[in-house]
C-alpha cells in the first residue's frame, strides 16, 4: 500500500508564479485570426456579389453575424492570451493555457529529447517566436509555447540544452529548496 511518507518540502507546481507571454503576443494572435477572417469575408462578399439569391437570403444575417463573430473571437483571444503563462524552473518547464479547459503542463528538462523554434512571417515582423519541446512517446510536441519573444525562446533553448541532471544540486538539496 502506498505510504505517503513526509519528504520534507515537496516542490509544489500550484505555487509556480507564471510569467505572462510577450506584449505583442495578443497582437500576433489577433492578426493571425484576421488573416483567417479577411479572406473569409472576401469570399462571402464575392458570393453575395455574384449570387443574388444567396445575397438576398444571407446578406442581413452576415452583416450582423460577422462583426459579432469577429468581436467575440477577439475578446476570446484577449482572455486566452491573458490566461497563458510559462515558467522555467531549475528542473522543468511549466506552461498553463486554456479558457474553458484550463491546462497546466510540466515537462522535466531531463526528459526533453529535442526542441524546435518556429517563426512565421507575422512572428518575424513582431520579433516573436514559438518553442516546441519534445519528449519520448508523445504524439506531437509535449509543450508548445507561442507568443514569446525570439530572445526568450533562444534563452530557453540554451537553458534546456545546458541542463544536465548530474550538474544540478544533489537530491537532498533539491528537496530542501
Amino acid at each position: 500500500m502506498f505510504k505517503n511518507q513526509q519528504i520534507m518540502d515537496l516542490p509544489t507546481h500550484s505555487a509556480i508564479s507564471f510569467m505572462p507571454l510577450a506584449d505583442k503576443a495578443l497582437l500576433h494572435k489577433q492578426l493571425n485570426w484576421l488573416a483567417f477572417y479577411i479572406p473569409l469575408i472576401g469570399v462571402l462578399i464575392a458570393l453575395c456579389y455574384f449570387n443574388e439569391a444567396f445575397a438576398n437570403n444571407a446578406q442581413t444575417h452576415l452583416l450582423i453575424g460577422m462583426p459579432i463573430l469577429i468581436a467575440v473571437s477577439m475578446l476570446y483571444n484577449m482572455v486566452n492570451i491573458r490566461l497563458q503563462g510559462f515558467a522555467v524552473r531549475e528542473h522543468d518547464v511549466a506552461f498553463k493555457k486554456g479558457v474553458i479547459w484550463r491546462q497546466v503542463t510540466i515537462l522535466p528538462l531531463a526528459r526533453v529529447q529535442h526542441m524546435e523554434i518556429h517563426q512565421g512571417p507575422i512572428e518575424r515582423k513582431l520579433d516573436l517566436a514559438s518553442i516546441k519541446l519534445f519528449s519520448a512517446g508523445g504524439v506531437s510536441a509535449d509543450l508548445q509555447i507561442g507568443g514569446l519573444t525570439h530572445a526568450d525562446c533562444k534563452n530557453m533553448r540554451q537553458f534546456v540544452q545546458n541542463y544536465r541532471q548530474e550538474d544540478t544540486n544533489s537530491r537532498a538539496e533539491f528537496i530542501n529548496e
Binding site: G98, I100, W101, R102, Q103, V104, T105, I106, L107, P108, R111, S135, A136, G137, G138, D142, L143
Partner: peptide
C-alpha cells in the same frame, strides 16, 4: 515524461482535476 492537469470551471468549483501522465 511529463505531467498535465486539466480542469473546467465547474471542476474547479468542485475542487476537481483530471490528470495525465505522459510516458514514453
Amino acid at each position: 515524461q511529463s505531467a498535465r492537469s486539466i480542469s473546467t470551471y465547474l471542476m474547479r468549483r468542485a475542487g476537481l482535476e483530471s490528470l495525465y501522465i505522459q510516458l514514453a
